[in-house]
Design a protein around this nucleic acid. Structure first.
Lengths: 254, 254
DNA sequence: ATCATAGTCGTCTGCTTGACGATAAACACT
DNA sequence: AGTGTTTATCGTCAAGCAGACGACTATGAT
């Protein structure tokens, strides 16, 4: 069979963009990099890059994630925590004109990672940072000072980020995905603070404890205890094999 | 600013593929079309086509849906039933080699429609049909006869279809999306049969009735009644404004 | 008239949740 | 050592919801 006539369809550039989320200091944060070239030079943007000619979309996303953070993505289907982050496809954005240079279709991916020491962009230290999503999405209450208004994200990345955050918020309701924000061993209180940061609400520690310890397969005790959060020593857990939470964790009204 | 150097990145073809689902004769069915040219000539495939150079992805999906079925897609954000089908982006598939001719990235979309009289493909009557998904996915119990084994779907369309079906199955749990399978006016029993067909389970008519009529905003009575299902006349409803179901409809265990 | 079919209203029981009291075990002070 | 603060963990109680299922209603078919 002969290949298509290349003039029979328009040629697209295909990129992957990453919404990398983590929880730092009780706030949901996203990884953003500063653009070094036009368009949107100097503005913050989501990390990403072109898909190579011989690369699957998931491979390209894992490669970009590794290049930007050093994280090793693990397959969502085999949930061993390890040092890896959770990585899944989010959505695809292909509006004509979203990149002023040419027709670009971007396959956005969502990555959830434990808190990392510091972002490392390609050698350049101050060209990447963890920014609270409340700032990036211009939600009220997200600014330490009035004049701290950050520039809008480049391209349609604010929309992509909002979709990623919404995916994360809804997915921790009915899955054990919140453990992807935690280190390999964590306490019930640390897991609760993940939920509180992602949802932006306060949860009752006693009911939360009852819920997560009472859901079979969600948490398995690792044996040790820790006092790193202060107060009474807390039991350490690992993520269990369960991936779906049934019944789900209920997000409080507004 | 100058455009990219076209040799700096690989060129892709971008297509949209459609998983169009409906409920016919108590079975969940998908629209498939017969391929008229290689590769996979003569095999069944999901409808789809190239994205045009000036077209958004959602536009392309709506255009293809209209060309294949005559349905008018309505925006998921403005849920007026009308004559339109629900249309949303599903996922994107871009594995190298998924199309043997060239590098193609396909943005799959999911469409849910009420039962239609007959599929109309581009003029050709027997080149499109509604096929039970149980057949297409080779699940047991899906065949009327032993020898009715259908050919595998072309490309990676079986995987795409499976993802679309799983999306539909999970989404009717916590949203009012099941009404997209119903005509503008429908009875509680008809809506229940939608759930039963999509999930492949039997639901208690009394508990189902209590649940859907007790969820505010899910259904609004239209005033009329009908006996088109036989038995006692049933009240007719329209889809209400609510889009999320809280608490969700619970899918019975296996 | 009788039956079959489908729709609708109730009841009861067990489970889950939300609100919240009480206790336990660490650390930081004085 | 004692006191306060912080966090973790266990228990109790009432309200709400779901599953199982009985009872009744209104139509068409025989």
């Amino acid at each position: 069979m002969s290949p298509y006539d290349p003039s029979a369809f328009p040629a697209f550039a295909v990129t992957v963009d990453l919404v990398v989320l983590t929880v730092r200091r009780h706030a949901l944060c996203a990884l953003v990099v500063r653009r070094g070239e036009p368009p949107f030079q100097g503005r913050w943007a989501l990390p990403g890059g072109f898909v190579r000619g011989d690369e699957d979309l998931a491979e390209a996303a894992a490669r970009e994630l590794s290049e930007e953070t050093g994280l090793c993505a693990h397959d969502p289907l085999s949930p061993e925590p390890g040092n890896g982050a959770h990585l899944e496809q989010l959505a695809t954005y292909g509006e004509p004109g979203r990149d002023p240079r040419m027709r670009v279709v971007s396959v956005a991916h969502l990555a959830l990672s434990p808190d990392l020491p510091a972002p490392r962009a390609g050698g350049d230290a101050n060209s990447a940072r963890w920014a609270p999503v409340a700032e990036l999405l211009n939600q009220e209450g997200g600014f330490a000072r009035e004049d701290e208004q950050p520039a809008q994200l480049a391209f349609d990345h604010a929309r992509i980020l909002a979709d990623g955050v919404e995916r994360a918020r809804s997915k921790i309701e009915y899955s054990s995905l919140a453990t992807a924000f935690c280190p390999p061993e964590f306490t019930v209180g640390e897991l609760r603070r993940v939920y509180e940061a992602v949802w932006g609400v306060a949860l009752d520690p006693r009911n939360f404890h009852r819920k997560v310890t009472g859901t079979p397969g969600f948490l398995v005790p690792s044996g040790g205890t820790t006092t790193r959060q202060g107060g009474r020593p807390a039991q350490l857990f690992r993520a269990g094999g369960a991936t779906v939470l049934n019944p789900p964790m209920l997000r409080p009204e507004v």
